[in-house]
Amino acid sequence: MLRRRKRTEAMFKIVGIGSLALAIGTLALLFGALVVEGASRIDWQFLTSFPSRRAMQAGVLPALVGSSLIMLVTAVVGIPLGVAAAIYLEEYARRTWLTELIEVTVTNLAGVPSIIFGLLALGLFVYILGLGASILTAGLTLALLILPVVIVTTREAIRAIPVQIREAAFALGATKWQTVSHHVLPYSAAGILTGIILSLSRAIGETAPIVTIGALTFIAFLPPAPFTDQPPFLSFEWLMSPFTVMPIQMFAWVSRPGADFASNAAAAGLLLVCMTFAMNGLAIYVRYRMRKRVSW
């Protein structure tokens, strides 16, 4: 009987490892498929060309520029808002119904499907505020989308700072904000940074909300440059420019029949996956370094 039990035990271990292997194998298969189909398409021409009716002349330049600019808007808006909200909830908020309400909405927003954020943006930013399907609209939409992620990860990082640190600062006469800005934030910076990187890596791959606000799939121009030769040398016209992003470009190519466009799609997908993996790898590394260094 003992032997039978040991055998079932061993069999379960194999099943467990097998199911994990299946998950990880799928990841490998997915990556492999992208490499086989798309790696040969990625060259200088692909990175610096506009989309084209002819698959072999098409490229991702507007999509790369669009993605970068939108990430810029998302980061500038979403990160300060998220970090500030987290600081408020962890350090300032008293237990009131309002705090409770804020916490419930944060949890809730984290579970809202991304396409609903697209509908929000379509109704609010595109029509009510009249911003159109612009870089600004897309950036604000993704900023709202990453807000709950930034808040949750920042709160976790802040909560890990021992309360004695705060008490020591208060004992020396520091105000609340001095305590937060001189001690709590610097000590939790690595944790916050991890959350920020992960949230941006999620935002860069988001497709559904951007499709919903009406992004174009075929863009043969770049947004106006942010720098001009006239004073004041800075121009924010690009914020209102139409755009495309990497996931939308890939979507456009996937939806088109023909093996050439499929391989363009794979190439765009490969770039996208490499970007998100690089960001995730960076986040894992920051977290690992942080764990090693911190000893309270």
Binding site: T26, L30, A33, G205, A265, G269, L272, T276, N280, I284
Partner: peptide, 20 residues
């Protein structure tokens, strides 16, 4: 590694579903 699996953009999963 599982986190990476969760980080793959959904559009790439769409490609994977349709063409693989």
């Amino acid at each position: 590694v599982l986190e990476l699996l969760g980080a793959v953009p959904t559009i790439v999963y769409g490609y994977f579903a349709l063409l693989v």
